[in-house]
Simulated assay, not measured.
Amino acid sequence: MDANSIVRGTLVSFLVGITKLSPDTAEIVDIKKIKSSPSYPGVIPKQMVVKTEKRNIEGKAVDFLVKFCPPGVVIIEASVEMDDILDERVFDLKRALIVECRTILWEYRCNPSFDEEYSVYCVSDYKGDPEEVILGHKDSIAGLLKTERIPLDEEEINTTIKFNLKYSKDDITIVDWDGAFVFDPRGDFASNIELFEIANLQLLKLRVLENELENRLEKAAQLLQRTTARKLPLLSSREVRHSLREIIQIRTESIMEFEATERNIKLIGDWYSARLYDLMTKKLHLEAWRTNINKTLDGLEDIYSMISENFSMSFSTTLEFIIAFGWLILLVGYFLLFFLEVFNKRL
């Protein structure tokens, strides 16, 4: 392929959402991998087909695939063949695909405030080294990866293109925050897309968890103010203990869920899929998200510990006051008995 010729390809845009429903599934998605991969069972979470359909989007026939990944994950995938995948109109088509994917996603009662979108530009119609094609179209490729129509600076373009992974002499995958370009003359795109979906799912779950923790942090701050102002009801000690247990449970579950997925994939070691997933986690800053969540969890534990201490101090003070008041009543009683006895003797 001439570096300056039209680049044919397939645009795949997908949306990941979380639902409480359990949709009926037809079959497990069977992804045939061309690149070598280990036979470890259960390393990659299984995806199941819910339904497939065709829709017309901006005059193009688009294939939609709805997948379910238990527990509670729905993936809407839209794919369309493009005569020129670097055409300026791809921006508008991609946005239209995402809008349609989101419409389908809402059918499964996914949280409208939380979803992750991503687009993959798949190119197989070329011969030789794909870097020659990239060199001739690097400004367009970088713009699509960043969903940026304005001309990018040369340094920004080169930085974007360098974030890539090669496996064979004639393939390359370029990864960015909002999308990826996959050049593979054998058309081995499905396994890459599967890893992109898993990485975006991890990001989505981290976002949802962070939002939940932020809400808990706000409630904890209000509860701390009430304890400081001595407005904490006696029954709130149970609330504090319950909240502490929930925080510990959240921390445990997050470690088990997020780290289990990464651990399973990284068990693959230096295999292509592990290296690609590692590239995605760096681009999506998943480690930074986890660090922030751990800091929030630490902050919550500190706040509830302070609340518990304040409650204990308040309860101890109240108990001491009750004891002192009891002694006062006893003393008053003794004085009354003493005066009554003196009064009776005088009579």
Rank of each mutant, 00 (worst) to 15 (best):
E132G: 10
L86D: 01
L297A: 06
E27Y: 10
L224F: 07
S168V: 05
Y167H: 11
S314H: 02
H137A: 13
S37N: 12
P38C: 07
N344W: 03
P70T: 00
P38N: 06
D30I: 00
E341Y: 06
T281Q: 08
E257Q: 14
L65A: 05
V74T: 03
I85R: 01
K231I: 01
K138V: 03
E259I: 06
S140K: 15
V240R: 07
K32Y: 04
I34D: 13
I303V: 11
L152C: 05
D87H: 13
V240S: 08
T10Y: 07
F338R: 12
F114H: 10
L97A: 03
K283V: 14
K94Y: 08
F64D: 02
T227Q: 10
P185D: 08
A190D: 15
C69Q: 10
Y121T: 00
T317Y: 12
R263C: 08
V332H: 04
N215W: 00
T291N: 15
I141N: 10
L300E: 06
S22C: 14
T10K: 12
T296R: 05
R186V: 03
V182E: 01
L319E: 11
T318F: 12
I161H: 02
N4G: 07
E210C: 01
R109L: 09
I329M: 11
A78E: 04
D270F: 06
L347Y: 03
T291C: 15
K146A: 12
K54W: 00
V123I: 14
K166Y: 00
C122N: 04
K54N: 15
S113V: 01
E155W: 02
E239C: 03
V80E: 02
G333Y: 05
Y121F: 14
M306W: 00
A61S: 12
K283L: 08
W106K: 15
V133T: 08
K35D: 10
F196T: 04
P38A: 11
D278W: 00
I329K: 06
T261A: 05
T52S: 13
N4Q: 12
R186F: 07
S79P: 08
I268K: 07
K33C: 08
E212W: 00
L135C: 09
L206N: 08
V49T: 10
K32E: 08
G42C: 09
D298G: 06
K60Y: 02
L204S: 02
A229G: 12
A260K: 15
K169F: 07
I134G: 11
R102S: 14
